[in-house]
Design a protein around this nucleic acid. Structure first.
Lengths: 234, 234
DNA sequence: ACACATTTGTCCGTATGTATC
DNA sequence: TGATACATACGGACAAATGTG
C-alpha cells in the first residue's frame, strides 16, 4: 500500500484509541515520527480531514473531531464503502432474505451499464448492528465481475470477500439519499412503527477503471442511525 | 485566491458549459493551459473529484461525470455550503416565516459552543427553487460573529452577504441527515401530502479557525430533491 | 501595538512507479 | 512492447494565520 495511506490508517487507529489528546502532533513531528516527507504526511492528513476525523487551523494545529467517531448511531458517509468498515467497533450481522442468480433486464442493464442478459447476483439482507435491526439491503452484483457468490458469503461481509479473497479494489461510489414510506413487512423487519418512513440510499459502487460491480438500495432504521458527512469548502 | 482554486473554478465553469467533451485534457495539457506546476493542477483536479465532477482512471485520463451536474432534483452534498452555490443554474427565492433576535438558551449555547445569553439571530424561511417549494429552513446565526442581519438580507442569500459583504470565509460544515414526519403546517408550506415525512438536515457551519457562526435545521421537499454524494475510497 | 517563533497553506521542480492503451 | 497518463514520493522556498511575550 502507498505510504500516505498506511500513515493515514495508523493515525486513524491511534485517534480511535485516543492515543493523542485533543490535538495531533504538528506536521513536523508527524513526518519525523513516520520518516516521510512533508507532502506525504500532508496527503495522509488530508484523508483524515476528508473523512471527518480532524480539522485543521492554519497557524495553530490539527484538532481531533470528538463527536462522530465510533458512535453507533452515526453513519459517516465519507467512509461509507461497505458497512463493516464504517462501524468497526460494532458487530454487523445479517439475515438472508433472498439470494439468487438472475439475468439483467433493461433497467438493471442500464444501471449497470452492461448488456441485457448479463448474469447478476441478487442479495437481499436484513442487517443488524449489535443485534438491533439496522437496515434492509437489496443488492445486485455483476457476475461477470464478481464471478462467484454463495449464501455463506452473503451471510457475512461481501465486501471483505471481494477485497480480501477476490483481491479486487473498490475505488469509489455514488450515493443517492431520499425518503421512502415503508411497507408493513419492512416495518416488521426493522422493528419500527407501521406507517413510518425511512432513509433510503441508492448506491452505485465502482472498482478501479470505473467498472460498476454493485448497485444497491438500502432502507435504514431511523431509530438506529443518523447519517453524517463533513463538507469542506474549497 | 489561491491558484489551484481559481483553476478548479475555471475548470468547473468549463465543464458546466460543456467546453470539454467526455474527457478533460491530460494533466500535462492542463498545466500548460493554465501555466502552473503539476502539483497545482493536481490540487485543482482533486477538488473536482471530491465534488463529483469527474473521476480519474490511472493510465487513461480524466472523465466527466455526466449525471449529477446541473440537475435541479439533485442536491450535491459535497458542494453544499449555501444553497445558491449548489444550484447556480436555478433561481432560489425565499419567503420569510420568522425573523428575530433572541438570546442563547442552554441548548443553543451548547450547540454553538458559546455562552448562555449570547445574542442570536433566528431566521426561518420557506425556500423555493424555480418557484417550487423546496425546503423549510430554520436557522440561527451568532450575532457576535455575524454582527448585523435584517429581513431584506434574509429574503435573499445570507451566505453571499456573509462572504461578499462581510468578507468572512466559510470553511467547512458538519451535516447530519435524518427523517422527520412533517406537521400539517409544514406539509402545506412544502405542498406535499399530509402525513408524509421529509429529509431533515441538521447543519453546523464554521468559519476559519473553526468558529461556529451558524446552525440550522432544514426540511427538504422529497418531491423536489434527492441528495447526492460521491465517496472516494482512500 | 508590535515583533517573533510556530504551524499550516501554497507553489515549484524532479524522479520514479503503475495502469492503460 | 513501447508510449501515454495518472500515482507516489522527495526536496525546497516563501506566504499567511496563530499564539506568545
Amino acid at each position: 500500500m502507498a505510504k500516505y495511506k498506511e500513515v493515514a490508517e495508523d493515525m486513524q487507529r491511534k485517534i480511535r484509541a485516543h492515543a493523542f489528546g485533543k490535538k495531533l502532533p504538528t506536521e513536523k513531528e508527524l513526518l519525523e515520527m513516520y520518516s516521510v516527507s512533508r507532502n506525504t504526511i500532508r496527503s495522509a492528513i488530508n484523508i483524515l480531514v476528508k473523512q471527518g476525523y480532524i480539522h485543521k487551523i492554519q497557524g495553530s494545529g490539527l484538532y481531533i473531531n470528538k463527536k462522530t467517531i465510533g458512535d453507533r448511531n452515526v453513519l459517516n458517509l465519507a467512509v461509507k464503502i461497505g458497512l463493516s468498515r464504517v462501524l468497526p467497533e460494532h458487530s454487523i450481522t445479517s439475515k438472508l432474505l433472498n439470494f439468487g442468480l438472475i439475468s439483467a433486464d433493461k433497467k438493471l442493464a442500464s444501471n449497470f451499464s452492461c448488456d441485457i442478459g448479463t448474469p447478476i447476483y441478487r442479495v437481499k439482507r436484513l442487517r443488524f448492528i449489535d443485534n438491533h435491526p439496522l437496515s434492509i439491503e437489496d443488492s445486485y452484483y455483476n457476475k461477470n465481475i464478481i464471478k462467484y457468490l454463495n449464501e455463506d458469503i452473503a451471510k457475512n461481509s461481501i465486501y471483505s470477500y471481494i477485497e480480501n479473497d477476490l483481491k479486487l479494489e473498490i475505488r469509489f461510489s455514488d450515493e443517492y439519499i431520499s425518503v421512502k414510506p415503508l411497507t408493513d413487512e419492512e416495518c416488521e423487519h426493522l422493528n419500527v412503527q407501521k406507517g413510518s418512513s425511512s432513509l433510503m440510499i441508492r448506491e452505485i459502487n465502482y472498482l478501479k477503471s470505473s467498472i460498476i460491480f454493485n448497485i444497491s438500495e438500502t432502507l435504514y432504521n431511523n431509530d438506529q442511525i443518523v447519517l453524517y458527512t463533513p463538507v469542506q469548502r474549497d
